[in-house]
């Protein structure tokens, strides 16, 4: 995963500098960019336009700008509260899910905790690197340790909070 992310980043940088280069060089760069980014376009897009929202169950989702897909994970607050994660049960790719379903579970300190989805849809990709290294959930739960990417149908259900609202919500808890 780390390798893929850094490839995408390099491609983006190349694309950015391409505008200031002679035409011949631009073509080469564009080709590089397409090859790397096209298969993953659904989930890349421009980060600035995606808004991260949090649920009362301490999951986060980030919906793509076209509103068709989202990335799901657990919040930093939840990861801290759970303690050392020793195993993560990921959902299966192509599984259909409904808002409110448990789509996986995290085990930490003898505790199994459900991972819930606030939105219906289909699982498109799971972060398999967590099977090898479940401890990543404790290190970067809102970044590298995302859990699943979903194709969504319909609006998220239940209260969805902005980062500010979620901060207040967890301060009260």
């Amino acid at each position: 995963m780390a390798a893929r992310v850094s490839v995408a980043r390099v491609a983006r940088q190349l694309a950015f500098s391409a505008g200031q280069r002679p035409a011949g060089f631009t073509n080469v760069c564009l080709r590089t960019q397409q090859r790397v980014l096209v298969p993953r376009r659904l989930f890349s897009g421009s980060g600035a336009l995606q808004v991260k929202k949090y649920t009362e169950d301490h999951e986060w989702i980030e919906i793509s700008e076209d509103g068709k897909t989202c990335t799901l994970g657990i919040s930093t607050y939840a990861a801290k509260a759970l303690g050392d994660v020793v195993y993560i049960e990921l959902p299966e790719v192509d599984m259909d899910i409904s808002a409110g379903d448990a789509i996986g579970a995290v085990e930490s300190v003898k505790s199994a905790s459900d991972i819930l989805t606030p939105v219906s849809g289909t699982v498109k990709e799971v972060n398999s690197s967590l099977e090898e290294k479940p401890g990543k959930i404790n290190k970067d739960p809102e970044g590298e340790a995302w859990i699943a990417k979903l194709e969504i149908s319909g609006e998220p259900e239940g209260r969805m909070m902005t980062e500010e609202e979620y901060k207040e919500f967890t301060a009260d808890a």
């Binding site: 009362e56 169950d57 300190v109 003898k110 505790s111 199994a112 905790s113 459900d114």
Partner: peptide, 8 residues
């Protein structure tokens, strides 16, 4: 020995 299950 103890074990736990956490839901919402």
């Amino acid at each position: 020995g103890s074990a736990y299950k956490l839901t919402r």
